[in-house]
């Protein structure tokens, strides 16, 4: 296991899939609020969490996009997303929030390798 004290949080839920995404983002915020170095990796359906222009007011649910926008204030400046997970969902860089960084499979491996601890939601 790596000696790094970086906490990697992997998020695989789309917006409005119940409150899965909201409760995953809560973990991100708590990690950052605890002063830990947090790395956010969105995978699979989690790609949709980073889509811009999501309108709030889906039936009875709060929008999660404001939480995504807030991450930068918590020093979570880069939101990693495997490029393949974006393209196979028809999402290009222009569709995603500005601090998204599209990464290839090798870089994803690196994120896992360099993490001291990992939480997957």
């Amino acid at each position: 296991m790596s000696q790094s004290d970086t906490l990697l949080i992997v998020i695989r839920s789309a917006p409005h899939d119940g409150i899965r995404l909201r409760e995953s983002l809560d973990a991100l915020l708590v990690g950052a609020a605890f002063g830990q170095s947090v790395v956010a990796l969105f995978m699979g359906q989690g790609a949709f969490a980073l889509k811009t222009g999501q309108s709030p007011g889906a039936p009875g649910q709060k929008s999660t996009l404001p939480m995504i926008d807030m991450l930068e204030m918590y020093d979570i400046e880069t939101l990693y997303l495997p490029e393949e997970d974006a393209t196979c969902r028809g999402l290009g860089a222009d569709d995603l929030v500005a601090n998204t960084r599209l990464v290839d499979a090798g870089e994803v491996q690196g994120l896992f390798r360099d993490a001291g601890r990992i939480l997957t939601f």
Partner: peptide
């Protein structure tokens, strides 16, 4: 307890196993 407790527990233990 708060979600912060999860992070504390993870720091304290050798392994955290998730049952999703």
């Amino acid at each position: 307890t708060g979600l912060g407790q999860l992070l504390t527990v993870q720091q304290r233990c050798d392994r955290l196993i998730t049952f999703a």
